[in-house]
Amino acid sequence: MAFLEVDGLSYIFPGAQPVEALRDISFDAKENEFISVIGPSGCGKSTLLRLISDLLPVSTGQVRIGGEPSRAARRKREIGFVFQEPALMPWRTAGKNVRLPLEVLGRRRGGTSTPLQLLDLVGLKDFADKRPDQLSGGMRQRVSIARALTYDPRLLLMDEPFGALDQITRDDMNSELLKVWEQKKSTVVFVTHSISEAIYLSDRVVVMTPRPGRITEIIGVPLPRPRDSEMKRESEFFEIETKVLRALDARSVHG
């Protein structure tokens, strides 16, 4: 049975001129499945994540996480979120930023890993006492990933987490993310507008088109795991890439 179910989800931003952001979005994800959502800017990808995580209230359609509505899942701390910006507290060291969720939740200990172990996992063991302004952009984003993992969320939502990084850094971060994910399995919904990033990381790629945001196709990625970056140069990878490109182009057919 699916762990995450999104069924008939629509969303209209209220206001003087209401904007239809999402129309009839349906997909699901198995436990520990890695799903990417890809589409051009303005197709409602971020809105989708905010609806799944109960940061925006669901009005039409439904979201179920482990069989429960998203609000209940959020309250049970089953959802982790990584934003496009690292969104760290500049006055806290890396270690204390990672510990923040535990403080808010009033827990002495983390889930299966301590904040320091998580920093180690993302390769920042020696940087626990550095403030964000002493770290580079990529390092800050690693801290933010470690922070999202402190309370062992079963669902991890990532909103273009590497979008602000250069291509080389981004490729490294992708490999590191997969390493982390192999160790700390969770269901991931990863929003991006990089096709190769989406394919490299995911089990399935959800392709969306804008105005209003709709799903055109869900494309499986039958590449074996663990993945390595050599796979990006294999013909199978190109075939999937072509499929995704076609799905993205479908919007011009529909107008």
Partner: peptide, 25 residues
């Protein structure tokens, strides 16, 4: 930082936690 505020909401932080841990610093 609006993202950090969203994070605090995601964690179900109380108003006072948001004030002490985010707004005041």
């Amino acid at each position: 930082d609006p993202r950090v505020l969203e994070l605090m909401r995601l964690l179900n932080a109380s108003r006072t936690q948001i004030f002490l841990k985010l707004r005041f610093p």
